[in-house]
Simulated assay, not measured.
Amino acid sequence: MAPRTGGSAFTASAPVDTPGCDGAPASVGPELRLSLLLARHGGSTDARIREALTTSGVTPRHAIVLMHLDGGRIGQRDLGTRLGVDPSVLVTLLNALEDRDLVRRRRDPADRRRHIVEITEAGVAAATKLGAAIGRVEDELFADLTAQERDTLHALLARVRTTQGGVCEGEADTDL
């Protein structure tokens, strides 16, 4: 057996081509598993985005909230639905953004039980800077892709099921 060299679990290796009972390869190298490839690239992308946002003091989640609000004011419950977060998590995010004067919450005059969330001028300026920082990260990440390939990747990733809500009734939930 050859000595093992250092490296991460995601280092490229040739897939094992010893056939199994059905004639298919008995195992597949990790670089051929889409979920592992996506996880590796997701982790790297997250780290790059966090680094790009470091100087702003805003987290990626805060940036996403600001980007949603940049299109106009929205009800707090609707914002939580769009973001797919628990109301308590949304309140924590909004509190942090409100403390920095990036968003404002107020009661809806038509329905006092409802809160309206809107971005402030400072929030718009921050969203613009955050968008530019994320754009630079994307330009680096996707430099080897054409515009058409980027569009195709975007369309494909938009169809990937990453939440439990996408599981059909009767399908088994499995944990990795």
Rank of each mutant, 00 (worst) to 15 (best):
91 V>M: 02
56 S>G: 08
85 V>G: 02
55 T>S: 15
79 L>M: 03
81 T>G: 07
50 R>C: 02
57 G>K: 11
92 T>E: 13
81 T>E: 11
61 R>N: 06
74 I>F: 00
105 R>Q: 06
68 H>T: 00
92 T>N: 09
87 P>F: 00
111 D>R: 01
58 V>M: 13
56 S>F: 08
89 V>T: 08
78 D>W: 06
74 I>R: 08
73 R>I: 05
96 A>I: 01
107 R>A: 14
84 G>D: 05
71 G>K: 05
77 R>C: 01
66 L>V: 06
49 I>N: 08
88 S>V: 14
98 E>A: 12
110 A>R: 14
95 N>F: 10
87 P>D: 03
79 L>Q: 01
67 M>R: 04
75 G>S: 12
107 R>K: 14
69 L>H: 00
95 N>Y: 08
49 I>Q: 10
93 L>W: 07
100 R>W: 07
61 R>G: 01
92 T>H: 13
98 E>D: 13
82 R>Q: 01
94 L>A: 04
97 L>F: 00
67 M>K: 03
111 D>W: 04
91 V>C: 07
64 I>Y: 11
55 T>W: 12
62 H>I: 01
75 G>H: 10
100 R>L: 14
50 R>P: 06
106 R>S: 14
105 R>G: 02
99 D>I: 10
82 R>H: 09
52 A>Y: 09
88 S>H: 12
109 P>L: 14
78 D>Y: 06
106 R>D: 11
87 P>W: 00
54 T>N: 13
99 D>T: 15
86 D>K: 10
73 R>T: 09
93 L>C: 04
102 L>I: 12
67 M>Q: 08
106 R>T: 13
50 R>I: 04
